[in-house]
């Protein structure tokens, strides 16, 4: 289980990385924390000809905050996010979710940008960013753009990022101090990818809309209109019937019944937590 051959690049700054990406396009992969990419390469499920290691690019690291949002550099590692007082105060949901990500040794390397760019449907970080109405910051040699998270995930491990773009960070609106949330996931074992998860983030002054996200179910994390419509109201049985239909639409294989059951349970418990 050894990777196929590749050329290794270790740019020291973002412009150099973007130039390499512009030059190699689809033949290149960007190496961030590598906690998912390295296994894929070792199993030769992906075989980039050029590997662009961005770990030495300091401008991609760190957490900053302004009045309305927290900006997290793409190369910020999970452990750093967990240790951040800024995150604990302004985006506690993110820290809560990251405690479910794998194990300490993995969190010491894994990055928020890598997780978003990989867009694993069972991963916590993309789901939390979706629940928090984050904006993904992408840059290419041509310039920078912000992508609303609602249009970022395109399908199974597919995103809005173009071949010549690097995800440089994510802006997450601060949660009002009074805002509550619920995060529940069910994994077979501690640290495993979720069988399913439900996140409820009721609207507040920063993000007025109710947002409810289901993950681990289907090709991407997705917002549940059934749950969003029910948040803050008395819940009728048909909410969960509607949720089950949403699950059925997202899951096309024989696990659909199972997923519908566990999502319903998680959603009931999440709703109860907010009640």
């Amino acid at each position: 289980m050894k990777p196929a051959r590749f050329n290794y690049h270790r740019p020291g700054n973002l412009p150099d990385a973007l130039a390499l990406l512009a030059e190699h396009g689809g033949a290149a992969r960007v190496l961030a924390g590598g906690q998912s990419l390295m296994p894929l390469m070792a199993m030769r499920l992906t075989r980039p000809e050029e590997l662009i290691d961005i770990n030495r690019i300091d401008e991609l690291k760190g957490i900053t905050a302004d009045d309305t949002a927290v900006t997290i550099g793409a190369l910020t590692r999970y452990t750093e996010i967990l240790r951040s007082e800024v995150i604990a105060a302004a985006v506690p949901l993110l820290a809560e979710a990251i405690r479910h990500v794998a194990h300490h040794a993995i969190r010491n390397r894994g990055t928020i940008g890598g997780s978003l760019a990989l867009a694993d449907p069972s991963a916590e970080t993309p789901a939390v960013c979706l629940a928090l109405a984050a904006r993904v910051i992408a840059r290419s040699a041509a310039g920078e753009r912000e992508i609303p998270i609602d249009s970022f995930f395109h399908g199974l491990m597919a995103t809005e990022l173009a071949e010549d773009e690097i995800l440089v960070g994510v802006r997450i609106p601060k949660r009002a101090a009074s805002a509550r949330h619920a995060f529940l996931e069910f994994a077979r074992r501690r640290g495993d990818f979720a069988q399913a998860g439900v996140i409820l983030a009721p609207g507040h002054t920063g993000v007025p809309e109710n947002r409810a996200v289901v993950f681990g179910v289907g090709a991407t994390a997705w917002r549940s209109s059934a749950l969003e419509g029910a948040m803050g109201r008395n819940i009728a049985d048909d909410v969960y019937a509607a949720l089950r239909l949403e699950v059925a639409a997202a899951v096309e294989d024989e696990t659909a019944d199972y997923k519908a059951r566990i999502v319903t349970t998680l959603a009931e418990r999440a709703m109860a937590r907010l009640a």
Partner: peptide, 19 residues
């Protein structure tokens, strides 16, 4: 394969020697 890299524990199978 857990080792310490710059004081933090990591999986050494998920890093290139080059890194």
């Amino acid at each position: 394969c857990t080792i310490r890299l710059d004081g933090e524990i990591v999986r050494s199978c998920l890093l290139l020697a080059a890194q």
